[in-house]
C-alpha cells in the first residue's frame, strides 16, 4: 500500500464533522448501481463507488482527482441506491469543498464560464442578461451581496475584474 491507501478514518471523520449526513456512506455495499445509472460515468472517469471506497479508506488523493468535478449532481444515484439515506451528490459537493480548501479545486480559468453569471448575480440578482419583467430593486441586490460576503463567488468576480484591469493596462 502506498501512503494514500493506508486505512484510516481521518478523511471520513472530517467530512462527517462538516456534514453529518455523510456518515451514511459507511452503509455502502459497493453494489455499483449508482455507477451503472450515472450519466457522468458514461462519458468520463467519474465513479461514485470508487470515490466512496477512497473516502472510507482515508485515501486523500480523492481530493486531488479531477473526477469529483465531473459529477452531474442529477441525484439519480440517490434514487437507485438500495441503502437508505446515502446522499452521494451531497458527499461530492462536500469533497469539492475540501478540495477547494486544500488548493486543489478548479483554477480561475476553469471557472471563467461562471464569471458573467457571478457578476450578474451580484449586480442584478439574476444570472441572465435581463429578467422577464421588473428588475430587482437595488436594496435587494445589496442584500444578496451581503449574503455572499467571503464566498468564492466574490473571488471569481474579483478575479475577473483584476484580469480585465491588467488587460486594459497592457493595451
Amino acid at each position: 500500500m502506498d501512503e494514500h491507501t493506508d486505512w484510516n478514518w481521518e478523511l471520513f471523520d472530517e467530512i462527517v464533522e462538516d456534514v453529518e449526513e455523510n456518515k451514511n456512506i459507511i452503509q455502502c455495499i459497493a453494489c455499483g448501481k449508482c455507477v451503472g445509472d450515472c450519466p457522468a460515468a458514461k462519458v468520463s472517469n467519474f465513479n461514485s463507488r470508487k470515490i466512496i471506497k477512497k473516502v472510507l479508506r482515508g485515501d486523500k488523493s480523492v481530493l486531488k482527482d479531477s473526477d469529483i468535478w465531473h459529477c452531474y449532481l442529477c441525484e439519480r444515484c440517490k434514487r437507485v441506491c438500495p441503502k437508505e439515506n446515502i446522499n452521494i451528490p451531497l458527499l461530492i459537493i462536500n469533497l469539492r469543498n475540501e478540495s477547494f480548501k486544500r488548493g486543489f479545486g478548479p483554477r480561475y480559468n476553469d471557472l471563467r464560464k461562471y464569471v458573467e453569471m457571478s457578476e450578474r448575480f451580484l449586480t442584478q440578482g439574476i444570472i441572465l442578461e435581463e429578467p422577464l419583467g421588473e428588475d430587482l430593486p437595488q436594496e435587494r441586490i445589496d442584500e444578496l451581496d451581503t449574503i455572499c460576503d467571503f464566498a468564492r463567488i466574490k473571488y471569481v468576480f474579483k478575479a475577473s475584474n483584476e484580469k480585465q484591469k491588467a488587460k486594459r493596462k497592457r493595451n
Binding site: F100, Y114, F121, I127, P137, R140, L144, C148, A151, I153
Partner: peptide, 20 residues
Amino acid sequence: KNQSCCSGTFFQRNLITRAQ
C-alpha cells in the same frame, strides 16, 4: 418583484456555502 435567482448554479459549483 423582490425575488432573486435561486442560486442553485452557484451552490452546485461550490461558489457559495450551504448557509449562504
